[in-house]
Amino acid sequence: MNDLATWLEEGYPQSVRTAYLILGNRLDAEDAVQEAFLRAWKFRDSLSKETSIKPWLYRVVVNTCNSKLRQEIPHRDRRESDDDLSDTPAADDMPSRLAICDGVLRALSDLPPHLRVVVVLRYYADLSEREIAVAIGRKPGTVKSRLNEARRRLSQHPDLQPDISHRGELKEISG
């Protein structure tokens, strides 16, 4: 249980950012993670010794995000905020980087939630396919097929079509 407490404390920022990428909104992300962490703590008995904490906790976070996407967000207007995915204001000094990021993020937000979740868990949270399977409660094969489908859709997205010529710039910037 001490491991869980430690993870809750240390994993909070990454969980919030993961939720942000899934939900596309900072306030919703913070709400979701708050709720998820409380649930995780409340039902920590269901965490068996054999189960790894990280995917289990992501499962709670993903379920909470899915619940919000299903129940709350569709029934209200989008939060008024300037920090939604793909709405990040452009900066004059880094047009290329922002153009690429915007393109990727817009394409991500256009993905259906079940594909978006696996992309975020794989490429941001850095979970393995097996861990993602635990996190979304599906088989690893399902995860693999969803990842393939998501990448195929992303590659066909209009915002990512022209060229990937900015790739080098982006690596330079982020590296």
């Binding site: 990428l21 995915l85 990040t88 980087r97 690429i100 990021c101 990727v104 993020l105 991500l108 992309v119 975020v120 490429y123 941001y124 990448r151 992303l154 990937i164 790739r167 982006l170 690596k171 910037i173 982020s174």
Partner: peptide, 9 residues
């Protein structure tokens, strides 16, 4: 590219 973009955001 995907990883970098997500982390950047």
């Amino acid at each position: 590219l995907l990883t970098t973009a997500l982390h950047a955001e």
